[in-house]
């Protein structure tokens, strides 16, 4: 194990617990690494102190390939790799944005006359969100959860125009 991961403790077959120094890694990288393991492992994160996070990994199967030390090593490599890649991505953000803006900026084209006539922008409506674009889709269409759907409906702006084709909510 490297200097940044310590206290690796095997808790039994296919299970390992270790702490990482949270000040060394962006939380996004920690999440990115954890996400990679969700198919094979049960992953639990816990905060030990302001700067330390405990990671508990348990293999979903008793597969020999899922031994604890291997898991910890792989997790750490993923964590470091995600950190490295994110730093490079940050350096390139403006380049990617410039290319994307130039490539796709004109695809939608300017609004037509119909669009402009349909707009009703005033000081009271300028920041409304009648289509619920700013809401999470799961909130609006919570599958089979009528309560959640009701909550989403209640949360919609009071003066939002009803949609012509109202969303279907499965009971």
């Amino acid at each position: 194990m490297s200097e940044s991961t310590d206290l690796a403790v095997s808790l039994g077959a296919g299970t390992i617990s270790f702490e990482i120094d949270g000040s060394l890694y962006p939380q996004d990288a920690l999440y990115g690494a954890a996400y990679v393991f969700l198919d094979r492992c049960y992953v639990l994160l816990d905060r030990v102190s302001d700067n330390r996070v405990r990671v508990l990994l348990r293999g979903k199967t008793k597969d020999a390939a899922l031994d604890g030390d291997a898991l910890a090593g792989e997790f750490q490599n993923e964590l470091l790799g995600q950190t490295w890649r994110r730093k490079i991505a940050e350096d390139n953000r403006s380049l990617i944005e410039a290319i994307t803006a130039r490539a796709l900026g004109g695809a939608a084209g300017p609004p037509g006359l119909d669009d402009l006539l349909e707009m009703d922008v005033g000081s009271e409506t300028a920041f409304d969100d009648p289509l619920g674009i700013a809401m999470s889709w799961e909130e609006k269409y919570a599958k089979g959860k009528s309560d959640a759907a009701k909550t989403a409906k209640d949360a919609a702006p009071a003066d939002a125009a009803p949609a012509e084709d109202p969303p279907e909510v499965t009971p």
Binding site: S4, G73, Q76, L80, W84
Partner: peptide, 12 residues
Amino acid sequence: RPFVAAGAAAQK
């Protein structure tokens, strides 16, 4: 695991 191998020497 090149990142583990590099340890503190890893940089962009």
